[in-house]
C-alpha cells in the first residue's frame, strides 16, 4: 500500500471517530431524556416515550439511515449534510436502545431511596438529580459500554451511503489495488483497536463513578444483553438467572 492510500485510510478513521463521538453524544442525550420520560408520572409522556423506543428499536439501523438520507429531504424540503444525517440516524436508533438501559437502571435503585427523597420533600427534579441519577448512572456504564461498541460497529453502515468513513476508504483502496485481503484485514484490526480503547475508557469511567457512590466495581461475568433485541423483549432475563 502506498502512502497516498494510507492517507485515505487515516481520513476514514477521522470521519469514523467524528461520527462516533457525535452520534454517541446524541444517543446519550436521547437515552436519558427518553429513559427518564418513561418513568414520568403522566401516562401520556410515558406512552410517547415508550412508543418512540418501540419504533426505533423495532426497525433496522441501516433502514433508518436510508430513510434519513432519502425520505426526509423530499418530505421536509431540507437536505442534511451527510455527517449530520448519519449522526441523526445512528443517534436516534441507538438512543432508543440506550433509553432501555436508563429506564432499567432507574428502576433498579432501591425504592427506599426515592421514598426518602419524598419524605424530605424534594421536588421530582431534585429527587432525580440528587438521589436517583447518582446511584443509577454507575450501574449504566457496563451496558452503555456494550452499546458504544455496537454504535462503533454501526458507524460502518454510513459507508453504504457513500460517506467517507473507514469502511468506505477500505472499499476505495480495494478498487485501487484490485486486491482485498490486506486492506480489509487492516481495517478490521483498526476497528478492533478502537473498540478495545473504548472498553478501557468505559472501564475507567465505571471505576471512577462507582468510587463516587462508595461502591467497588464488580467484575462478574454475564451474558451481554443483545443490543438489537426486539421490541418489548428487553426484559427477558437470559440464561444467567
Amino acid at each position: 500500500m502506498t502512502t497516498g492510500l494510507w492517507e485515505l485510510v487515516l481520513k476514514g478513521i477521522w470521519t469514523t471517530v467524528q461520527l462516533l463521538v457525535l452520534s454517541s453524544l446524541l444517543a446519550a442525550a436521547v437515552s436519558f431524556v427518553v429513559g427518564v420520560a418513561r418513568t414520568h408520572r403522566l401516562w401520556i409522556v410515558r406512552f410517547l416515550a415508550g412508543f418512540y423506543t418501540e419504533v426505533f428499536r423495532g426497525t433496522s439501523a441501516l433502514v433508518m439511515i436510508f430513510w434519513v438520507f432519502f425520505v426526509l429531504p423530499p418530505a421536509f424540503g431540507w437536505q442534511l449534510v451527510p455527517m449530520w444525517a448519519g449522526t441523526l440516524a445512528l443517534g436516534l436508533t441507538y438512543g432508543a436502545y440506550g433509553s432501555e438501559i436508563v429506564r432499567g437502571a432507574l428502576g433498579a435503585v432501591d425504592p427506599a431511596q426515592k421514598e426518602g427523597g419524598i419524605a424530605l420533600s424534594f421536588t421530582p427534579w431534585q429527587r432525580l438529580r440528587l438521589i436517583l441519577l447518582p446511584q443509577a448512572v454507575p450501574e449504566m456504564i457496563p451496558p452503555f459500554s456494550n452499546l458504544l461498541i455496537e454504535l462503533l460497529k454501526g458507524t460502518a453502515l454510513v459507508s453504504v451511503m457513500g460517506m467517507g468513513d473507514l469502511t468506505f476508504s477500505a472499499n476505495l483502496v480495494r478498487l485501487a489495488l484490485q486486491q482485498s485481503a490486506e486492506i480489509y484485514t487492516y481495517v478490521l484490526l483498526i476497528y478492533f483497536v478502537i473498540a478495545f480503547l473504548l472498553t478501557r475508557v468505559m472501564r475507567g469511567l465505571e471505576k471512577k463513578l462507582k468510587a463516587g457512590v462508595g461502591k467497588a466495581p464488580e467484575r462478574k461475568v454475564t451474558a451481554p444483553e443483545p443490543v438489537g433485541a426486539g421490541v418489548g423483549v428487553g426484559g427477558v432475563g437470559g440464561g444467567a438467572s
Binding site: I149, L152, K153, G154, T155, A156, L157, S159, V160, T167, A170, N171, R174, S180, Y184, V187, L188, Y191, F192, A195, F196
Partner: peptide, 9 residues
Amino acid sequence: NTPLLVQLF
C-alpha cells in the same frame, strides 16, 4: 468487536 459490514466485505 468488529463491524459485520466489513466482515461481509
